[in-house]
């Protein structure tokens, strides 16, 4: 269990700390990135088992990074969970995004405020059964 690695990409240090702490509590080794660029580099270098990506970030936002990771054969199969603070963002037209970027939707969503138990459960579900499609915590 201790070798499982997760990558948390969020511009807010406190949220990175919070999510990292929850995942570490459940046996994950966590890496963090504060920007989309840094996150992309870490994904390619370390190929984590799961990525938790903030939807709203300054500069290159979460959606652009999501599209790039999904569009690349080397990273497209890594389970990816979107973290969002706005409920309405769950209603983003993923069909349109998926069509536009010719890719598949994220594997999971979690809305802030983050419930530690639900987050841990979601990560387990997404990693163990990615074929279930979009999962929301």
């Amino acid at each position: 269990m201790g070798t499982r690695t997760a990558l948390v990409i969020d511009d807010e240090a406190d949220i990175r700390n919070y999510i990292s702490s929850i995942l570490e509590e459940h046996g994950w080794t966590v890496q963090t990135a504060s920007t989309a660029e840094e996150g992309e580099r870490l994904v390619r270098e370390n190929r984590p088992e799961v990525i938790l990506l903030d939807l709203v970030m300054p500069g290159q936002g979460g959606i652009q990074l999501f599209a790039r990771l999904r569009g690349d054969e080397g990273t497209s199969t890594i389970p990816l969970i979107m973290v969002t603070g706005i409920k309405e963002q769950l209603n983003i037209d993923w069909k349109e995004i998926v069509t536009r970027f010719k890719t598949r939707a994220p594997d999971g969503f979690i809305e802030k405020p983050i419930d530690p138990t639900r987050l841990a459960q979601l990560v387990e579900n997404v990693v163990s059964r990615p074929e279930r499609g979009l999962q929301v915590a």
Binding site: E12, D14, I15, N17, Y18, I19, S21, P113
Partner: peptide, 17 residues
């Protein structure tokens, strides 16, 4: 509201950590 939600999330995170 969005900002308060973020702050609350970080507060909860602080307590958790």
């Amino acid at each position: 509201s969005h900002s308060i939600k973020n702050i609350l999330d970080s507060l909860m995170g602080g307590i958790y950590v």
